[in-house]
Design a protein around this nucleic acid. Structure first.
Length: 282
DNA sequence: GACCAGGAAGAGT
DNA sequence: ACTCTTCATGGT
């Protein structure tokens, strides 16, 4: 079994990383193995202490996907600026932001609007099963996430069985615009955060929240600070008591929160967001 | 700026 | 069984 030896000065926790809500296509078995589809590969991974065992890709791919090249201690030190975030960091130490394939991440967060995590997972699995390429792995079938052109060629009605609700035309419309995923990805990637955000928000079905998630999880724009209902609640309770409660989140409130976070936590505030989100119920 | 659609599953009562 | 909530967005 191929194994990566994790350095003790570079903390990593596979379980926290894959169960914190940033990915939708990974499953953990009872005996501690994680199975996931990333790009055109099925990956199987487990962690035992400082050993990361894996199948399905070269070590360089695993290393890159889990951002093991990033100096996590330095990043966490830079956002660790108050007792509350300090506690969240202590409780979820080793959480790393993974590098998600951009098109899949984009479609996923269009599907994620106003839904709970199990529902989002079902929708993405459904799109992959309907349009993706099947891969057999250890006797089980897995499905790659389809290129945008595969979805657009299937026509608007093809998505109906995936039960996306009102998100169906958004996923379809975006797949028609992002026909060349590679070229679109490079175009977004070279833009600075604010410009890339505007570019993503031109797409139907991507508002501020989805744009920030995509920029953080797929484009490594660590200044992005996605504000969902949980983060808003946490920010109100611990950082910005002046904000109202209960009423829907306005664009102005969203900007107030993300600008505060950018100032308070610094250029890696996206990492702070993930640690706050991971500790949302405790 | 305030409302509303549109949809499904989980969690709590 | 019933209600409330859910990693919001776009249109009126």
């Amino acid at each position: 079994m191929p194994t990566l030896i994790l350095r003790h000065d570079q903390p990593f926790c596979l379980d926290v990383t894959l169960s914190c809500g940033q990915v939708f296509r990974w499953d953990r078995t009872a005996d501690g193995w994680w199975y996931g589809v990333v790009g055109d590969r099925v990956l199987k991974v487990r962690q035992d202490g400082n050993k990361l065992m894996f199948l399905g890709a070269p070590a360089s791919f695993i290393h890159h996907y889990f951002s093991l090249d990033m100096d996590l201690d330095a990043i966490l030190a830079s956002v660790d600026c108050d007792p509350f975030i300090h506690n969240a960091i202590m409780n979820n130490r080793g959480l790393r932001l993974v590098r998600q394939p951009p098109w899949e991440c984009t479609a996923s967060y269009i599907c994620a609007t106003n839904s709970n995590i199990p529902t989002i997972r079902r929708r993405i699995a459904s799109i992959a099963k309907r349009y993706g390429r099947p891969i057999e792995f250890e006797g089980k079938m897995y499905y790659t996430f389809p290129e945008p052109s595969v979805i657009s060629c299937g026509g608007h009605e093809g998505l109906t069985e995936c039960r996306l609700g009102y998100r169906q035309p958004y996923v379809f419309g975006t797949s028609c615009i992002v026909t060349d995923a590679k070229q679109w990805e490079e175009m977004v990637r070279k833009l600075p955060y604010e410009d890339a955000r505007k570019e993503l928000m031109k797409l139907h079905g991507i508002g501020p929240k989805a744009a920030d998630c995509i920029l953080l999880f797929a484009f490594q724009k660590y200044e992005a600070f996605p504000v969902d209902v949980w983060i808003r609640r946490i920010m109100q309770e611990h950082y910005l008591p002046g904000l109202g409660t209960g009423s829907p989140l306005t664009g102005r409130e969203y900007d107030t929160i993300r600008r505060f976070a950018r100032e308070h936590f610094g250029e890696y505030c996206g990492y702070a967001q993930e640690y706050l989100f991971a500790g949302r119920e405790g």
